[in-house]
């Protein structure tokens, strides 16, 4: 791990200083090398371990674990669950992603109040997020499996249609929509490549990498955070955690990403 991290740090230094002397293509190659180096020792493993512990530990007003939580594959089945989300759940009569489903289980099984279960979805310096850890654990249990979000139930299909609408909806002082940045292949913001999320080849590669450890933020970030962060950059207001908007956008993206192998939690800039 430490030699990997050293190599990674060297790669970061390289990536940061390279633009002065190297042409654009070489810069991108340097960043790719840095990503490869980091893959060998992903700090997200610490989140996965903490998440597994949280999953198995008796918590909440009812003092029970999450081990009977139904993530879509039956109570207690974590293996493969993330690869089949978002999906429709009859008990809530809603389409849910991993994070909103974890909230449901924390409320129904452990007796947390919904607002408490939703209180701390994203960590900050000096403040861990249990949700980030739990999501890392759940996602890791689908590593190597093909994403197969169902999109068959009428509510799943409706979520897709609403997600399609929201993905292309331009608004705010800058007229931005998701598609401003994510509709065309081969584009960048500064040096950051932008995936075309309606292109199956590209969506399969990136959608399946969240949650991910983000080096620039020193933390695992989830898909809910990715959407929140995009809306921030789009000059939109704070997107509520586990909102239907987030779920609809995820269902929309999952349709194109289906078939891609789950590599979460991955490692990113």
């Amino acid at each position: 791990m430490s030699s990997t991290m050293r190599a990674a740090v060297a790669a970061v230094v390289l990536a940061c200083t390279a633009p002065i002397v190297l042409a654009q293509g070489s810069t991108e190659k340097g960043i790719e090398q840095y990503r490869q180096a980091l893959k060998e020792g992903n700090p997200a493993e610490l989140w996965e371990a903490r998440g597994e512990d949280l999953w198995k530990r008796k918590r909440g007003p009812k003092n029970v674990s999450l081990e009977q939580c139904d993530l879509g594959q039956g109570p207690g089945v974590v293996r493969g669950a993330y690869a089949h989300l978002p999906r429709y759940f009859a008990d809530t009569d809603k389409v849910q992603d991993a994070e909103s489903r974890l909230v449901t289980c924390m409320v129904t099984l452990q007796g947390f109040k919904e607002e408490d279960a939703k209180k701390n979805p994203f960590s900050a310096p000096g403040r861990h997020s249990d949700m980030e850890a739990l999501t890392s654990y759940v996602a890791a249990e689908s590593k190597g499996m093909k994403l197969n979000a169902p999109l068959a139930h009428p509510k799943e299909r409706e979520a897709f249609e609403l997600g399609d609408y929201l993905f292309h909806r331009r608004a705010g002082p800058h007229d931005y929509s998701c598609s401003t940045c994510h509709a065309e292949s081969g584009k960048r913001i500064r040096l950051q490549e932008l995936p075309a999320l309606t292109d199956p080849g590209e969506a399969q590669k990136v959608f399946t990498t969240w949650p991910a450890y983000r080096v620039s933020q020193g933390s695992v970030r989830t898909m809910q955070h990715r959407l929140y962060d995009c809306y921030w950059q789009m000059r939109h207001p704070q997107l509520d955690f586990a909102s239907d908007t987030a779920t609809a956008l995820m269902v929309y993206m999952a349709k194109f990403a289906n078939g891609g192998e789950v590599h979460a939690p991955a490692l990113k800039r």
């Binding site: 929201l166 939109h236 704070q238 997107l239 509520d240």
Partner: peptide, 21 residues
């Protein structure tokens, strides 16, 4: 439905910003 959903999803966000969006 999508417009109502979007509006509901910004319930905790800055009010003036939400209105504009």
């Amino acid at each position: 439905r999508a417009e109502a959903m979007l509006k509901a999803g910004f319930s905790k966000g800055n009010k003036a910003m939400a209105e504009r969006v």
